[in-house]
């Protein structure tokens, strides 16, 4: 069985790869491209640890095929910071101790970034429902919500400057 040739953009970089028809985007990221920041927690779209942004929308990369990336723009956790400057969501996750084991963290950060890109001023309830597709077993979500709400405030202040 021959592999498919895919041309796409990942974290701003033009990227080409070969993948099997049945390989998920998550498999491609982790096993073909060495981008292991996206995690596999369930492979059924229930845990959100593999969350990526595809053309502005969040997607569980375990539910997307590698071939579907053709011509798309993809952001993974590796592309959230700008160089050595952390995204406000990343910085606030650190300051609020919003991670314990850190395994769900990439998915949460990608999902939270997408939320704040679309809605700079969410209510706590909106943020809780937006993040309801990301499972965290360690934190009880308290500090994650505080980090996201705090990051939203920082980003609004930055936008005003």
């Amino acid at each position: 069985m021959s592999k498919h040739h895919v041309t796409t953009t990942i974290n701003g970089e033009p990227t080409e790869y070969l993948c099997e028809g049945q390989q998920t985007m998550l498999d491609v990221l982790r096993d073909e491209l060495g981008l292991t920041g996206s995690k596999e927690g369930c492979s059924s779209g229930d845990c959100g640890a593999c969350t990526i942004i595809v053309d502005g929308d969040i997607v569980c990369s375990c539910l997307m095929l590698g071939v579907e990336a053709e011509g798309r723009k993809i952001t993974t956790i590796e592309g959230v910071a700008e160089g050595d400057k952390l995204h406000p969501v990343q910085q606030k996750f650190l300051e609020h101790a919003a991670l314990q084991c850190g395994f769900c963290t990439p998915g949460f950060i990608v999902a939270a970034k997408a939320l704040l890109d679309q809605n700079p001023n969410p209510t706590e309830e909106e943020a809780r429902y937006w993040l309801a597709g990301n499972l965290c077993r360690c934190t009880g979500y308290d500090k994650i919500l505080r980090a996201v709400m705090d990051a939203a405030e920082v980003m609004r202040a930055e936008a005003r400057r």
């Binding site: 369930c42 059924s44 309830e125 809780r128 429902y129 993040l131 965290c136 077993r137 979500y141 919500l145």
Partner: peptide, 13 residues
Amino acid sequence: GFLDYRIPVASDM
């Protein structure tokens, strides 16, 4: 699976 074994999510708490 996590769909049918349902652990708390952010909107539950």
